[in-house]
Design a protein around this nucleic acid. Structure first.
Length: 468
RNA sequence: GGCGCUGUACCCAAGUGGCUUAAGGGGAAGGUCUGCAAAACCUUUAUUCGUCGGUUCGAAUCCGACCGGCGCCUCCA
């Protein structure tokens, strides 16, 4: 039984999808005004792992990730660069899609863009006005929070608290300083669309409400995003959607903890701001995914070089086992042994860990326990049946690859190339050297290859290699 | 000021009342294997969970106080 910590109820709730066997899930994607950073990457990756686990569990998942392509920051960026806002959005949307592919995030079923949904946004605003909870103030349309009595239910805030700590600038045209913009009146130099209230553009929060309702229905199962979006963004999404439809908007709200760099908040002014593009020059996608999987999604996470290196090192153990299994299977190095191995137990532990609010650190630990157990058997020298080896590989394919995608799957059918043949010759020469006890030559070959990133590993029968 | 999170070994990090006299990874030390390495495996590395009290037959887990760290309340994943 899957249980999910739900921000809305502040408790771990049993997960019951609206339609049995199917899940509708929406996750806040980027505002495309810049390359995204490793903090954003955490949200995207953890959302991806949650989706993959739901798929692994047998659910049919409809996964929507929005792209906010019209917003103050995009306009600002466009003005800075002296180009069209549309162009800024297009450039960074393309970069975004490239980047998430690099970090092995499964493609969403839909990537709705705000600018493709202006019509839906306008309809929703019109509905809110009809319902008497939004007002047109001379071309700007605001949401009147006092008209929605559920306002604050997600973030646990109430209007009085907000006013007590008010740091929101007072805007004379609003009825209440906390009313927020649904539609912004056109200003010179900004993109605009026609609407019943005059030319303008959507406010920040409305596109998620409109697109979520459009693509997933007026009530859907899961909505995820960074913890900083709880207020005001998600609070406002609820107010808008429920104000318009009168139905519960989302059943389960999932929020991801923040990422710090060396214990400090990542910010451009501190100079500790890393885009994903910077990151993947130094580490690979699997390391990042594994690093994130090692901490529960809701906890704050401190990002340090030391921690990343430790993750890269630890991950090798899992990758080595996977490679070893592949090699044993493809080389036909099999026999008749069928050792006792509690594979079902590992599946159970893995499932139970993930069912407990997606406890990825615990699930990762299960994979390590499995690896230790499997390695112990594999290295015992016996010859195992192909079926047994394949069952071990299958476990890794389903968990480490299918759910986490933290190990690399090399093309099984990849042909040998010239480098492979040359390395093969060197290994043969080295083998001869070892037989004649010319260890100086044997070590020379190994060291030289090592310097090229080719790691030789001797075993009793043969020498294998991997290219780093 | 309001709301919320958090403090577990040298580092990262699960565990939130008895299954745990605290998982897993990194690091360190010793060992097996090896010509030597590498890989892999074995052993060791927190009688203790920020501090002090309390509740309980029993607490890292619940309660209180105190000392730290952090987030949101303003654009932010």
């Amino acid at each position: 039984m899957l249980r999910i910590y739900n921000t809305l109820t502040r408790s771990k709730d049993e997960f019951k999808p609206i339609t049995p066997g199917e899940v509708t899930m929406y996750t806040c994607g980027p505002t495309v005004y810049d390359y995204f950073h490793i903090g954003n990457a955490r949200s995207f990756i953890m959302s991806d792992m949650i989706r993959r686990y739901l798929l692994y569990s047998g659910y049919k998942v409809k996964y929507v990730m929005n792209i906010t392509d019209i917003d103050d920051k995009i306009i600002k960026r466009a003005n800075e660069e002296g180009i069209d806002a549309r162009q800024v959005a297009e450039n960074y949307t393309r970069a975004f899609l490239e980047d998430i592919e690099k970090i092995k995030i499964k493609k969403a079923d839909v990537y709705p863009k705000a600018t493709d949904h202006i019509h839906d946004i306008i309809s929703m605003i019109a509905r809110l006005i009809d319902n008497g909870i939004a007002y047109n103030a001379d071309g700007d349309v605001f949401y009147e929070i006092s008209k929605f009595n559920g306002y604050g239910k997600l973030s646990g805030k109430n209007t009085e608290d907000l006013e007590a700590g008010a740091r929101v600038e007072v805007n004379e045209i609003k009825n209440n300083p906390f009313d927020f913009a649904l539609w912004k009146k056109h200003k010179e130099g900004e993109p605009y669309w026609e609407s019943p209230w005059g030319n303008g553009r959507p406010g920040w929060h409305i596109e998620c409400s409109a697109m979520g309702c459009k693509h997933l229905g007026e009530t859907f199962d899961i909505h995820s995003g960074g913890t900083d979006l709880i207020f005001p963004h998600h609070e406002n999404e609820i107010a808008q959607s429920e104000g318009a439809t009168g139905k519960q908007f989302v059943n389960y709200w999932i929020h991801f903890g923040f990422l710090n760099i060396d214990n400090e908040k990542m910010s451009k002014s501190l100079g500790n701001f890393f885009t994903l593009r910077d990151f993947i020059k130094k580490y690979d996608a699997e390391t990042l995914r594994y690093f994130y999987a090692q901490t529960h999604y809701a906890s704050p996470l401190n990002f340090t070089d030391e921690a990343l290196s430790a993750s890269a090192k630890g991950l090798e153990r899992i990758q080595n086992l996977y490679d070893k299994l592949n090699e044993m299977i493809s080389s036909g190095d099999t026999g008749t042994e069928e050792p006792a191995f509690d594979l079902a137990g590992y599946y159970t532990s893995f499932n139970e860990s993930m069912d407990d609010d997606f406890n990825t650190p615990k699930a990762v630990a299960v994979i390590f326990d499995f690896a230790k157990d499997a390695n112990r058997i594999i290295h015992s020298g016996a010859k195992f049946t192909r079926g047994f080896l394949e069952s071990l590989k299958e476990f890794m394919d389903k968990t480490a690859v299918g759910v986490f995608e933290i190990i690399k799957v090399h093309d099984a059918g990849a042909g040998r190339d010239l480098a492979d043949d040359l390395i093969g010759i060197l290994i043969k020469v080295r083998q001869e050297a070892k037989i004649s006890k010319n260890y100086a030559l044997a070590d020379l070959i190994r060291n030289e290859l090592n310097a090229l990133g080719v790691i030789l590993q001797d075993s009793k029968e043969k020498t294998t290699y991997k290219i780093h």
